[in-house]
């Protein structure tokens, strides 16, 4: 059961090279944490996996269940079961959060009219998970991220992951801007998702979340390269010594 595989990935945006040969696996039923300082290429890795425009793969491969995704547009990668919770998701005026989720589900089921609710259980599901995330039901009727607080944005991203039921979940800094209760909440949900067999890629700058959920693998990316890969002890090392130390220790000058 391979899950998501990234192999020797080299990526550039226009003339700037941002990833230099990243190799890692995110297996089903596991949490793979990606750590690194700001601007190290963590989010770029996530965007490249999602196939975002202007992230140009020069070399290497991205595979889901052994099948390369490189030729697929973003929406087809999503339909194959990859979901990304953005660090700072954009506002989408005019489109309600529920409308997006309904459209995404209809699309997955092959229903032509994307805006119609065919199965009312979808609505129940949205309510259930909103409640679980301490989100008021009203948020479903609000325009996506318009006037959302930082915490609401994070939780709305997670809500979509729960409702859309992807196979692979990439979370880009899901804990930033959350209070300690919020961090615990997210951590608990990640545990549940792991138990359900999802492959989880958790991008984070700080190790504070690992008090509540232990990653199976930790990869530290610095300057677009893997500095170190290992178990939870790598996160502890980052926490104790900081990225400057990691850089010095693992990268030869």
């Amino acid at each position: 059961m391979p899950g998501l595989e990234v192999e020797n990935l080299h990526v550039r945006i226009e003339n700037k090279k941002i990833l230099h040969g990243i190799t890692l696996n995110v297996e089903y039923g596991s949490i793979h944490a990606i750590m690194g300082p700001n601007g190290s290429g963590k989010s770029s890795l996530a965007y490249t996996i999602m196939g975002r425009e202007s992230y140009e793969v020069e070399e290497g491969d991205i595979r889901l269940d052994g099948e390369s995704l490189l030729d697929l547009p973003t929406e087809e990668r999503a339909l194959k079961g990859i979901y990304m919770a953005l660090q700072d998701p954009p506002q989408v005026p005019g489109v309600r959060l529920s409308t997006l989720m309904i459209a995404a589900i209809n699309k997955k089921l092959g229903n032509l009219d994307l805006t119609r609710v065919k199965d009312p259980s979808i609505v129940k599901k949205m309510y259930k998970y909103a409640e679980e995330l301490n989100l008021s039901r009203d948020i479903l009727q609000r325009e996506i991220n318009v006037g959302f607080s930082g915490g609401e944005k994070k939780r709305s991203e997670l809500l979509q992951a729960l409702v859309l039921e992807p196979k692979v979940i990439i979370l880009d800094e899901p804990d930033s801007g959350l209070d300690i209760d919020g961090v615990k909440k997210v951590a608990n949900i990640l545990k549940e998702l792991k138990a359900e067999g999802k492959a989880i890629m958790l991008i984070t700058h700080y190790a504070r979340m690992f008090k509540y959920v232990t990653p199976d693998i930790v990869t530290v990316i610095i300057d677009g390269k893997i500095a170190v890969q290992g178990g939870p002890e790598v996160a502890n090392l980052v926490e104790e010594k900081g990225y400057a130390y990691i850089r010095q220790r693992f990268f030869k000058r």
């Binding site: 929406e75 979901y83 953005l86 989408v92 309600r96 459209a103 995404a104």
Partner: peptide, 21 residues
């Protein structure tokens, strides 16, 4: 990108935005 990352094509995303508008 955000809307396509949820499984919608560019045109489907645009139609959602237009209808919302």
């Amino acid at each position: 990108f955000y809307l396509t990352s949820r499984g919608l094509t560019d045109d489907e995303a645009k139609s959602l935005i237009v209808l919302g508008f």
